[in-house]
Each structure stands twice: as C-alpha cells, then as structure tokens.
Design a binder for these strands. Structure first.
Lengths: 137, 137
DNA sequence: TATCAGTTTGTAATGAATACAAAAATGATG
DNA sequence: CATCATTTTTGTATTCATTACAAACTGATA
C-alpha cells in the first residue's frame, strides 16, 4: 500500500472505523474528488475498479462515515445528497448551469454563536446558487 | 369570497397565475402554515376539503409557483422539499428533534454582493441545525 | 479447523417526484 | 346558447434515490 493509502487507512482508524478495502476506496474517492460526489457518482467510479461493488455498500459506508463525523452531507439540490470530507466551516456555491458545487470561504457572523433566537445551534450551513466563473464565459 | 381569499387571488394574478380554486387553496395553505410544508403536507390537508384533489395537482401548482417566483424551495433535510412564500431574505433553523423549521432573521455579510470568488450569485441560502427553543425544555 | 462478529452483496421495497394521457373545466367566438 | 380550442385537473404508471433485509463472505480468535 502506498503512502497515500496509508494516510487514508489511518484516517479511518482515527475515527474508529475498521479499514476495509471498500471503505478505503470510498474515502479516497471523496478526498480526491474536486466536485462533491453523490452516492451514485462514487458507485459508478468504484465499480470500475471493484466489479462486485454494491450500491448498498456505498450507502452503508457513507452512513457509517456520517455517524463517525468523517463526512458531511450537502443537501443543496434537494434531489440528491452530496458528500464532502469534514473540514473547517465553509460555505458552498452551486452552479445552476453545470451543477458543480464549489467551496466558498466567507465569514459567517454567527459562526461562534451557540444559539439563535433561543435555539441551540449544532450545525451551520450556507450556500449560494447562481452561475459559476467558468460558465459565465 | 372573503377578503382573505380576495387577497390571495390578487396575489396569484399579480404573479401572472390564473387563479383557480385549487391554486387558491394551495397558496392559502402555505401562507397560513406555521411550519414550512412539504407537497405531501399540503396534499393531506387539502384532500379533506377537496376530495378529488390529486397529488399531481399539488406538484404542478408548486412548480408553477416556483417558476413565477411566488414560493421558494427549502432543501434542508435532503429527503424532501419544503416550501415557503417568497419574502425578504432570511435564514432557517431546523430542529433535529421535532423536525420543525423556524425562520431566523440575521444579517448575511454577502447579502448585497453580486459575486463570490468570481461566481455570479442568484440566490443566498443559510440554515442552522440543532435543538429548538421548545425542545430544549 | 470451527466459530462468531462484522462486512459486503443482491434483491426487494419504500417514498418523493415526474411523465403522460384522459377527463373536466374554462373562456372566447359565432 | 352551442361550439370549439385551450387550460387545468386528475389518475396511473414510471423513474430515481435510498433503505430494508437476508444470504454470502471475510478475517480473527480459540
């Protein structure tokens, strides 16, 4: 196993997840993905490498990663869930033309707050929709 | 028709939508709803008053309202689309315990911006997840 | 080697949303 | 009022993402 795969393996272990080949591949794919993939994107790519790969495994794995806080779900489009590796808080931009989702780093005025209107905050999500840089040309 | 219904009727006309009975009822229901209803919520309520009501009519109507800018879709949960009347920009709070969505009025630092990172902004969405005021007790 | 928990896989089922065509309502025109 | 075209509503069938479930597989340990 090369060093990249070793890193991914220890990342799984760090989150208390037993590193299986399928899980390594799923995590690797999400990490290297520029876009924010759906379960189906992940399946379509991995099934090339692992012909026996099942969609259910993808869903099982993603739900496990979610539980362990390794990934975060993005529900911007409303018709599908997209996933990204948990990192520092940031926002997203969905291009209405090409469908791509970009990361956006902006300051949220409530990022340090524990509450809004008396409600206890656990997660903060923000996103923009519009036409991306590339599609504007 | 009472004055409330007259207001709803003129609201439809203002947006270039022919006011039919079904459309009046859908718009009325969304307006009076404290929560932010799903298509199914709307259907389940209206079918009591209009026994012939079809789910397809609800979806047709909602999509028409969306096109005309009368309502806005909320895709917070990822498993369903919720709707609210288009009003001034505001954010939302989803309670992870009771599932209710609250309106939240905060200032977004980019609310007047036309772009982020070179991408052209058309819509701004923000929401929080956590435990709501009521469920904390 | 036998066993056992955890993992993967395939099939079937669910549930939101859309496609589509028939039926019903509407509205303009003669 | 009758006709006809257009719009709206309705019901059924379909799609698509996701979950449920049980069988097959894997790998560690006794």
């Amino acid at each position: 196993m090369n060093t990249k795969m070793m890193n991914i393996k220890s990342e799984l272990e760090k989150h208390g997840i037993k590193p299986t080949y399928q899980r390594l591949c799923v995590l690797e794919f999400i990490e290297q993905s520029q876009d924010h993939p759906t379960a189906d994107h992940i399946y379509e790519n991995l099934v090339k490498k692992i012909p026996t790969m099942s969609r259910t495994t993808i869903y099982n794995t993603l739900n496990l990663f979610l539980e362990k806080g390794l990934v975060v779900p993005l529900t911007i489009t409303g018709t599908e869930v997209r996933y990204e590796i948990t990192t520092g808080q940031h926002h997203h931009f969905l291009c209405l033309k090409c469908g791509r989702i970009y990361d956006v780093n902006i300051q949220c005025p409530l990022s340090q707050s524990k509450t809004v209107d008396g409600h206890q905050i656990q997660e903060i999500h923000g996103y923009f929709k519009g036409i991306c840089k590339n599609c504007l040309n």
